[in-house]
Design a protein around this nucleic acid. Structure first.
Lengths: 257, 257
DNA sequence: CTAAAGCGTTTCATTTAATGAAACGGTGTT
DNA sequence: AACACCGTTTCATTAAATGAAACGCTTTAG
């Protein structure tokens, strides 16, 4: 790895700017972005102008900036996920229809859960987790599940290098508690998130195995606690499992992500 | 628009590098990329290192570089297209199954055709046009179709500012010829590309209308001329039209793209 | 109707960072 | 054992990014 001092500062700044454009805040002005990032407004303006000239960012009629088609184009070229997305589109959609909640496909990536694909429920109340986003391992069903099915090395490495931040009063914050929870999850072959990341949000995750028997991804259903009944867990799981098997049958040679 | 001299050169170089990662060439080495772009290999190395540190590019075990998850993440945040893609996934897939050729969803963007979504045929011989890519208006079925259904202003603006480059011996290169062709296309409500962009490649496109009656997108089928029979045009069109109607029914309030 | 405050944009002297040639250390090949 | 090729690092030179202030414009306030 190259020394930190040798990294190109303009590029880093450009991507920090791009990261400010989220689903919750899609549009930014120059001064606004300068305040948010701490960069000089001239710098922000020039960086944005450059990105506009490359179609990485578009400028609205109201002068506000938003993400542009070049990112869409490049995002669609990221080959690692293409086949996995194609293969999972239909199965997770079917699960979402049957389960009537948002369905997400997750994978471990850099000590976090990375969401690869999503099928929205048709319900009015939807969760906002978006494709391509990350969430903490210890506070999510997908995260705990995937960690539970990881190697002992991966687990210990994770526990050593991460502090378990509390997001709600239900978040697991003690490493010993998480460790024994992982054992339970592996035995019961599913994981729950009972408002551990966000109050009012419940989630169930089960593993997707490749032919070598490794859990390479998770399929999960998320919905508001108001709709969730603990006695229906087995029902949710059996629907998710239909989806998981359908995906597993289509999978060819994914070892990991 | 900002003066060209004020654009950030590092960012431009970074995106020129990223653009080298195509579906046909997904992996690059440092020297290889340096040769391709004309940049010094030290520069390429440092740019790549920066992009790796940002997860914009990943490095394989064999030291080769490829596009990374940050682009996937950002690409999925480009909001302009999200709902249109969700709405069209299933219809174009159905069309692809029935028509047995690659189906593309196109829209006009900056005097070019921009492909928003794609459903592959199951045939061995597939076309390589990818989501997010651009093609010239005058040499494609989708381009000619969308231009034909554009306003007179848009048409004349296009004809004024673009020269009609020949890609094959069949490409329309005379502006008067294109102009009269547009009239025909608008009347018959479909457009053909008979090896006008790439030899051996045939394409049929029909419009998708919004509720205001504007053609906001095209749906097209592309395949090798060896499989294509002119007498089947009406059959292709009726299958495409089923897909178009299905999309039109799902569309809510897209005026343009 | 004018003043003030907001915005994106441009300017220009100053500073900081990107640059390229060459060397380095590793791997695989002849 | 010699060579060729790779990604990587070094360091003096050069070129480009930077920030404060001013600009022109639009929107809001008095």
């Amino acid at each position: 790895m190259v020394d930190n001092k040798n990294l190109n500062q303009s590029i880093i700044k450009a991507f920090i700017l791009l990261d400010a454009f989220t689903n919750d805040k899609k549009e930014w002005g120059v001064r606004e972005l300068a305040n948010k990032t701490g960069y000089n407004k001239s710098t922000v303006y020039r960086l944005l102008s450059t990105l506009v000239s490359l179609n990485v960012i578009h400028q609205n009629e109201n002068e506000k900036y938003r993400l542009g088609s070049k990112l869409f184009e490049l995002g669609n070229r990221v080959s690692l996920y293409q086949s996995l997305i194609t293969v999972t589109n239909q199965p997770i959609k079917n699960v979402a229809l049957e389960i009537q909640e948002t369905v997400l496909l997750g994978a471990l990536k850099e000590q976090q859960v990375f969401y690869l694909n999503k099928a929205d429920s048709l319900q009015g109340l939807k969760i906002s987790t978006s494709i391509g986003s990350y969430q903490p391992i210890h506070a999510t069903a997908s995260g705990k599940l995937l960690l539970a099915f990881s190697s002992v090395n991966t687990q210990e490495n994770y526990l050593k290098n991460n502090s378990l931040t509390a997001f709600t009063q239900n978040t697991i914050t003690k490493k010993n508690e998480l460790k024994s929870k992982l054992q339970i999850i592996k035995n019961q072959k599913y994981a729950l998130d009972l408002e551990e990341f966000e109050l009012g949000l419940i989630c169930i995750a089960i593993p997707i195995f490749n032919k070598k028997g490794n859990a390479i991804a998770s399929i999960s259903a998320s919905g508001p606690s108001s709709r969730f009944r603990l006695e229906n867990v087995q029902n949710y799981i059996s629907i998710l499992q239909k989806g998981a098997h359908s995906i597993e049958n289509s999978l060819q040679d994914f070892d990991s992500l």
